[in-house]
Computed example of a mutant assay.
Amino acid sequence: MKITIPKENVDYEAEILEYIKKKTDGVTITDIAEDTDFSRNTVSKYVSILGLKKKIFSRKVGAYKLYFNAEEISFPKLFTIAYYKGLLSGLKRNFPDSEEIFKEIGRNCYEYIDFSLGPMISKELKGLKVNRLIKIYYEVFGRFYPSYEVAQPLIDISVQNLDENNTRTILKFSNSEFLQTTDDFLLHAYIIAGLIEELWVKEVGRKIKCNVGKVHISEKKEESFYELYLDVDKRKF
């Protein structure tokens, strides 16, 4: 049975704010009214209240006035990636042969990125801290790593090789936003290499060395890839 909440019991301010939070590209008063089934007058009233409380802000875009959540500004993915690509390209052009510096930047990134791992992955990571089979580390790592990847959680990772001593493996990264028809954005791989070194220490409790290996650039995004060589310090086990 559908229960209809009386209008007088609706928290309009909270409902409208929650709606705006979910629409990171911005919404108009008409959008809010149509999707919430509130009247335009009601929406206008509470949008004004939220604006005065600085919980939302507005931007004039063409003929429309769009409202955004002020507590946590979230840029559209395509804009974020385009901005990041421009930054990578500029850094590569102005700071050639500085790969190790960008690995260090990757290590520093760790403390500023809010990693949200599911309960199952968190449980596996805790298990790794008492497991001495290095092979298992790589298998679990390939599953949880996409949660850490910048702007591309759908990146593909595969284990290409594990040496006979179980101390080195080669991870192949494909389906990347930053490897298409140019290597202008390759510094991303070095930043990620540094990030991986740091997260292994902090999340897994194991020290590794991560270096960029083979890089293949293709006109087809799905054929481009880069490899990272991971060397585990067995003395830490």
Rank of each mutant, 00 (worst) to 15 (best):
F38V: 01
L50E: 10
G118D: 15
F102M: 03
L50K: 03
I81R: 04
F38I: 01
S116E: 14
G62P: 01
E71W: 02
P96Q: 07
V47F: 07
F115C: 05
K123Y: 08
D37Q: 13
N41Q: 12
S39G: 11
F38C: 03
A63W: 08
K103E: 13
L52N: 15
S74Y: 06
F75G: 01
K55C: 04
I73Y: 09
K126P: 00
P96S: 09
V130K: 11
K65H: 07
T36L: 15
S98Q: 08
R132V: 12
C109L: 14
R132D: 15
G62I: 06
N69Y: 15
I73H: 04
I81N: 02
G51E: 15
L66T: 04
E111C: 01
L125G: 10
E72K: 13
E104Q: 10
K55P: 00
S98W: 01
K123F: 08
A70D: 13
A82I: 06
K45L: 07
K45A: 09
L117V: 10
P119D: 10
E124N: 06
Y112G: 11
L78V: 15
L78T: 14
L52S: 14
K54M: 03
Y112C: 01
L66W: 02
N69A: 07
K65R: 11
P76C: 08
A33K: 00
G90C: 10
G90A: 05
K55I: 02
N108D: 08
I113A: 02
D35E: 15
L87F: 13
N94S: 11
E72Q: 13
K123P: 00
D114W: 01
G62F: 10
N69P: 01
L117P: 08
E99F: 04
I105D: 02
G127L: 04
Y46H: 15
R40T: 09
Y83K: 12
E111I: 03
A63L: 12
L52G: 09
E71G: 10
P76N: 14
K126S: 12
F75Y: 14
K92F: 07
Y110A: 09
L50I: 09
P96I: 07
E100G: 09
S74F: 05
F57W: 02
N69T: 06
S122F: 00
R59I: 07
Y112W: 12
K54W: 03
K65E: 15
R132H: 14
A33G: 00
I73L: 07
G118F: 02
T80C: 03
S58H: 10
Y112L: 09
S58G: 13
N94I: 01
K103A: 03
G118I: 06
F79Y: 15
S116Q: 11
D37A: 13
V130W: 03
R59M: 08
Y112F: 15
L50D: 10
F38Q: 07
F38A: 02
